[in-house]
């Protein structure tokens, strides 16, 4: 969520149980501002918190001109000193999925050892040594994956300019109460994957300057999002059941929206059994 609205928006997403205490909030207000200046970001977001066994990682996200492509993640333990996370690519994602097990420890230099892929069947490639993976890299990949798979924006909050830049839509006035109750009006804030596969008939109703993102409604398995009206029914809250801890809020009829992740950083692979 945007660092400028952190005052009140944290209260709206704390239905999941986690929040920041006064000390951390105050520290964030100071350090995020400095972060924006030092890294020349156009917008700084407080992205969330990943609970470790010994210590928790606080994650911030900085954005450049393009809201979707120019983004960087930083982590911190005390909300003051921030360290840049390496950008995640497909090779890293593969490494992490093999090596990472269990909870985060809270020590960025902690090393996970990957069990080599080869089983007893193919003994030929024995030179594959067990790869080592630091927790910092795992953190980078996890944050990247969560942001890719579970970040949410209301439809119309961002538009695409004629130059292809993705920017906040200044004319966005919020979804109506009826719209906020339906999952199809919320979009993934990530590079669209399913949009191209849609039927032409479905594409006909879409507005190309707004509908350039995937809708949450099309996700498989169905039912991996829990949409509720909270805070006396005034705030629309969406929780991801795939990444437990991802909470999105939107106050209908206002442009306020945002998401935050507060959880243990483990994907809920048991989801199909649990619905």
């Amino acid at each position: 969520m945007d660092s400028n609205t952190l005052y009140y928006s944290l209260d709206l997403v704390s239905g999941i149980g986690y929040t920041l205490n006064g000390e951390q909030r105050a520290a964030l207000q100071t350090s995020l501002l400095l972060l924006k200046k030092n890294y020349k970001f156009t917008r700084v977001m407080f992205w969330g918190k990943i609970l470790g066994i010994k210590d928790d990682y606080f994650i911030a996200q900085g954005k450049g001109d393009d809201e979707l492509k120019d983004k960087k993640f930083l982590y911190s333990f005390n909300c003051m000193e921030w360290h840049l996370l390496p950008p995640a690519d497909d090779r890293m994602v593969g490494e992490v999925s093999r090596a990472a097990k269990g909870r985060f420890t809270g020590d960025p230099s902690y090393e996970y050892t990957a069990s080599p892929l080869q089983r007893e069947g193919d003994e030929a490639s024995e030179e594959v040594v067990a790869t080592k993976l630091t927790e910092e890299r795992r953190l980078a990949v996890t944050v990247h994956l969560i942001d890719e798979e579970a970040s949410v924006v209301p439809r119309g909050a961002f538009n695409r300019t004629h130059l292809g830049l993705m920017q906040t839509n200044r004319c966005f006035e919020g979804l109506s109460h009826a719209e906020a109750g339906k999952l199809e009006h919320f979009l993934h804030f990530a590079k669209p994957k399913k949009l191209k596969k849609k039927f032409i008939q479905e594409l006909a109703d879409l507005d190309p300057s707004i509908d350039f993102l995937d809708s949450l409604n099309d996700d498989i398995p169905n039912g991996q999002w829990s949409l509720q009206l909270e805070n006396a029914g005034r705030v629309c809250v969406i929780r991801s059941l795939l990444w437990l801890g991802m909470t999105f809020y939107h106050v209908p009829m206002t442009p306020q929206h945002g998401y935050v992740y507060m959880g243990d950083g483990c994907k809920n692979l048991d989801l199909p059994f649990m619905l």
Binding site: G15, G17, L20, N21, G22
Partner: peptide, 15 residues
């Protein structure tokens, strides 16, 4: 609880 980083929202808690 808020010191501990646990909350349900202040207004919600009041309710």
């Amino acid at each position: 609880l808020e010191q501990a980083g646990v909350a349900l929202g202040r207004e919600e808690m009041q309710r």
